[in-house]
Amino acid sequence: MRIFITVLLFCFTLPSIAFSSETITIAIERNALERIQALSEILNVPIDKLEQIPDVKINRTTADVIILLRSLRMGGISSPIEYIEVPNARRSTAEVARGRAVLCSQQLNEDTIAVPGYKDAFLVSAPITRYGEFQKGFYTLLENTELLTARSATEINQRGKGIIGQHWNNDKQVLQNMGITNVIDAPTFDCMVKMLNAGRADWIPLEIATTQDFSKVLNGIRLIPIPGIKFSLLESRHFFVSRKHPRGKEIYGALQKGIKELRKRGFIHKILTQAGVFNPRTDSWTILNAEEMKKGK
């Protein structure tokens, strides 16, 4: 089955673009699109035809796309997939809200759509990552030895400046509630990494890698987490479906059916573990906001 890729170039306004009702239009960020293209080439199979978890290294956004497409196929949707490239999660939800795309490619928390005009724009799937499951570490450069010895939220706040995505609203709120206020934001993930490497920030909150030393290499820059500590985002994450899209309700029903079956089979937990969203090797690490996490359950 062919997979179509549509690249949208945005200026001050969004153009009116019509997509075939025979295809499933999915809004996706460039980095995620490039990764699934690369994975498809490595496996020599279209991503929407994957039936098993690939035995290669993947990240969260790739796992999200696989879960999404597998759910749709299991729910009975056989239409071709068409991707709309967007710069960030905010533009992704804007495309879905307008009905230009029927789905966002990644799971997001419900605060993402708590904005004016979005109240009746979305159908929200069953949770993919359930409340409290999405946890992050504090990633920094190897030479930032003082920050790497931090053991509390107070010490992190005192020893370095964090950087998050411009629309990472829940990260920002959770960090503030922990007393971590020394944080700035950036418009794109690539920009965040560049600013960290340039010394304009000291750490980024990221899901903990499955590598032996938990390190990540991003844009050629090696980052490691502060050992032994992490935090929970205190949220559940979902796929968003457009109410305005002609096939929105149909897609939503199929998606829910597929998610239920994948959850039953253990597929979701397995692939998110492989992607590093869940990391059993950090189960003993201290969750800095553990008490708040327990209150929400």
Rank of each mutant, 00 (worst) to 15 (best):
I42T: 15
I42Y: 14
I42H: 15
L43R: 01
L43N: 01
L43V: 10
N44V: 12
V45A: 11
P46I: 11
P46E: 03
I47C: 05
D48C: 00
K49G: 05
L50D: 07
L50R: 14
L50M: 13
E51N: 14
E51V: 10
I53L: 02
I53N: 02
P54E: 07
P54Q: 03
D55N: 15
I58A: 06
I58R: 02
N59K: 12
N59Q: 07
N59P: 02
N59F: 10
R60D: 05
R60P: 14
R60C: 11
R60L: 09
R60S: 07
T61H: 15
T61N: 11
T62I: 09
A63F: 01
A63V: 08
A63R: 15
D64C: 02
D64F: 01
V65H: 00
V65F: 00
I66R: 02
I66K: 05
I66F: 03
I66A: 00
I67P: 08
L68T: 12
L68H: 14
L68K: 14
L68W: 07
L69G: 12
L69Q: 08
L69V: 08
R70D: 02
S71Y: 04
S71N: 04
L72D: 10
L72K: 03
R73V: 10
R73W: 01
R73I: 07
M74E: 07
M74G: 07
M74H: 07
M74Q: 12
M74A: 12
M74P: 11
M74D: 09
G75N: 12
G75C: 12
I77Y: 00
I77P: 03
S78V: 08
S78C: 04
S78H: 09
S78T: 13
S79C: 06
S79P: 05
S79W: 05
S79N: 10
S79K: 06
P80A: 07
